[in-house]
Design a protein around this nucleic acid. Sequence first.
DNA 1: CGATAACTTGATGTGACTCAACTTAAGTGG
DNA 2: CCACTTAAGTTGAGTCACATCAAGTTATCG
Lengths: 253, 253
Amino acid sequence: MTTVVSQSCHCGKRRECVVYNRSVCHAGSADAMAQLNRIAHRRDYPRGSVIQAQGEACAIVGNVVEGVVKLSSASVNGDDHIVGLLFPSDFFGRLYSEDSRFSYEAATDVSLCTMNRSAFERFLADHPAVEHEMLKVKLDELDAVREWAAITNGHTTMQRVATLIYVFSRRSRNQFLAADQPVETIVHVPLSRRDIADYLGTTPETLSRNIQMLARGNVIRIINAKQFELLNPAELIRHSGESREDLDRIASA
Amino acid sequence: MTTVVSQSCHCGKRRECVVYNRSVCHAGSADAMAQLNRIAHRRDYPRGSVIQAQGEACAIVGNVVEGVVKLSSASVNGDDHIVGLLFPSDFFGRLYSEDSRFSYEAATDVSLCTMNRSAFERFLADHPAVEHEMLKVKLDELDAVREWAAITNGHTTMQRVATLIYVFSRRSRNQFLAADQPVETIVHVPLSRRDIADYLGTTPETLSRNIQMLARGNVIRIINAKQFELLNPAELIRHSGESREDLDRIASA
DNA sequence: CGATAACTTGATGTGACTCAACTTAAGTGG
DNA sequence: CCACTTAAGTTGAGTCACATCAAGTTATCG
C-alpha cells in the first residue's frame, strides 16, 4: 500500500492537500480556495464501483486523490474500451455537459475530492484564473490523448506493453517523477490484466504472452501480477519503439 | 469545388465570416470582435504544405476557413499517424505552449484565419467569455478524440472505413448537417488514400480493398478516388458496427 | 480449505501487413 | 493538345501477429 496519508479533502489548504501541487486548485486566491473548500467533499469508492455511468447525468466532478479511475466507453456489442486512466491530482468529470459520454469507474479502491458540477461551474465563472488553469490542463490532456492514440494505433502489442510499463515506472506510487530522476526499479501497475488489455487495445491472453516474453528476456522480473522489477530499462525502451524523451513526456502528461 | 464564397477573414463581422457561427469568435462582444479583427489575417496554403512543424515553435493559431488540415505525429521510424482532422470553423494551433507536439499540414488547399499566438492569448486574457467558450470547445474535442480512439482501437478496418465514410457523408461540403437532415447521397472525401489510411491506422492497400468491397456490395458507388455515391446508408451503418445515434454524434463533434 | 475469479499457456484460424506488379489519374513540357 | 513522366490507386500472393477458443494454473476470498 502507499504511504500517502489519507485525509479529508482540503483543496484550499495548500500544505494539507496531497494533490494540491498538481491539481487546478492552486491557481486561485486564498479566498477562492476557501470557497472551493466549502463545496468539496471527500468520497471513497471501492474497486469496481461506477462513479459515473456512460450516458447518465453529470452530477459530480473533482480530483482523484488516491487510486486509479478508468475512463471507458462501452460499445453496443459489449466490449468496452478504456480511453483514459486518471491518477491522483487528475481532474475527473465532464464540465458543461448534461450527460457523460464515458463512464468513470474505480479501477482500484479510490478516494476522490468531489464537487457538485454546477457549483464548481459557478465557482469557475467567478474565478477566471482557475478556469484559465483548467483550460491549460485540458489542452495538455488533449495532446496526451492524441499521443496515446498514435501509440496504440501504429505500434505492435509488444511496443504498447513496453511503453505502458515504462510510463508506470515513472510514476512512483502513482506520483510523478521528474525526468531527471532515476527510473524506479519496482513498477507497480495496480490494474487488472483485463483493464490493461482494454487500455492497450488487446486481449488479456496476448498481453500475458508479451509480459512473459519480457520476463524471459530478463527485461523485467514478475514479482506478482501487479508488480514488476525493472531489470533492464534500456531494453524496455528499445522494445517500446519510442525515444526516451517521448516516453518521459508521455509519462508526465 | 464548393460554392462557399472565398473572402478575407473578418472574424468580428458576423454575417461576413463563413465560419462565424461555429468558431469561438461568436462568444465575444462587438468590441471584442473588432479587436480580434485587427490581429487576424487570412492566409492560404497549398495542399501538402506544412503550417506548423512538429516540435517547432508555435507562432500562429486560428480557424480553418476552407479545406482540411491534418494533425499528425511522426514517429522516429518514419511512419506518421494522423491524430486529427480539422475542418472549416475548427480551431488550429496550440495555445499556451512554446512548441507543438504535432504537425499541422494542409491535406487539401486550405485557407486559414490566422492570428499571432501570443496576441490571441492576450486577447483571451482580456475576454474571459471567449476563453470560456474555448474551454467548452476543447472539452468537446477531448470527448471526440477519445471516442475516435475507441473506434480505431476496438474495431476492424471495415468498421473504421464505414464509420469514416458515414461521418463524411454528414458533412456536406465539409459543413455540418443537423442529425435530422437526410444523408447526403454524394460523399466527398477530399483526402488521399494515404492520408485516410494514416487516419484510420491502416495501409492504403487494405483501405482500397475495403472500399472496393463496399462498392461490390452496392453499398457505395465509386465516382472517383475522392467521391462516392451512397447507395445503401443502412448497410453502411451496419458495416460500421456503431449505432446511428453514435455515428451522428461523432459526425457533429 | 473449498470455490471462484484472475492469470497463464497451448493450439488454431484469420485479418491485415508486406512486397510486388499492374492500372489509372495527374501533371509537365514540347 | 497530346506524348511522356510520375504519382496515386488497385489487385494479387504470401506471411505473420494477434484474436479466439480451450484447458490448465495460480491467486483471492469467504
